[in-house]
């Protein structure tokens, strides 16, 4: 996009502002490095802006539309974000790769992020949608597969996540 970008529609800014935590969570699941996360977040916003003229509120829930674009960018982006080496089996004393979350559940969440790091990009999408409490119907819509396939795959990913979590 050139420096002379057209003025941003107020409703688009309001929408992104409202769903910013969702977009940041997607970026956080896919990038452990803060700079990469910022890059990804901005790339998602840019692609949402490009897709915005085609968005029809009646055709899909706004969250479905946001997850679709965000996951499509995160999973299929050509950019090489892996400035750090791909995660291998983590030693017990390894530092947290993801920024340490705050709050009373911080330890569990930090472990969860570490477990998620071990998953493939597609598995991350399943885990993210599960954690975000999306219905199977919406997941199928976002991922472009049938609900039955979502169920089967979700069980496998959940098992894998449990195993990873138990090893941390």
């Amino acid at each position: 996009m050139s420096p002379a970008a057209p003025p941003v529609a107020a409703d688009f800014t309001a929408l992104i502002g409202e769903y910013q935590p969702l977009l940041l969570r997607v970026a956080r699941v896919y990038c452990t490095d803060a700079d990469d996360r910022q890059d990804l977040y901005q790339e998602i916003v840019l692609q949402l802006w490009r897709a915005w003229p085609q968005y029809r509120p009646g055709a899909a829930k706004v969250s479905t539309w946001l997850y679709r674009v965000a996951l499509n960018v995160a999973v299929s982006d050509l950019r090489r974000r892996s400035r750090r080496p791909p995660p291998g089996p983590l030693p017990p004393d390894a530092p947290f790769a993801a920024p340490a979350p705050d709050g009373p559940d911080a330890d569990d969440l930090a472990l969860l992020y570490r477990a998620i790091e071990q998953l493939s990009s597609v598995e991350k999408a399943f885990v993210l949608l599960y954690l975000e409490d999306r219905s199977y119907e919406e997941m199928a819509d976002i991922l472009g597969i049938t609900q039955n396939n979502v169920r089967v795959k979700m069980h496998r990913v959940q098992d894998k996540l449990r195993t990873l979590f138990s090893r941390l």
């Binding site: 970008a5 941003v8 800014t13 910013q20 901005q42 802006w49």
Partner: peptide, 21 residues
């Protein structure tokens, strides 16, 4: 679902314009 959101500055129209530009 109850984790604290990442601390980011509020998304103003100017900030959005900066991202898109």
């Amino acid at each position: 679902r109850h984790q604290a959101p990442e601390s980011t500055p509020p998304l103003t129209p100017e900030a959005m314009q900066a991202i898109l530009s």
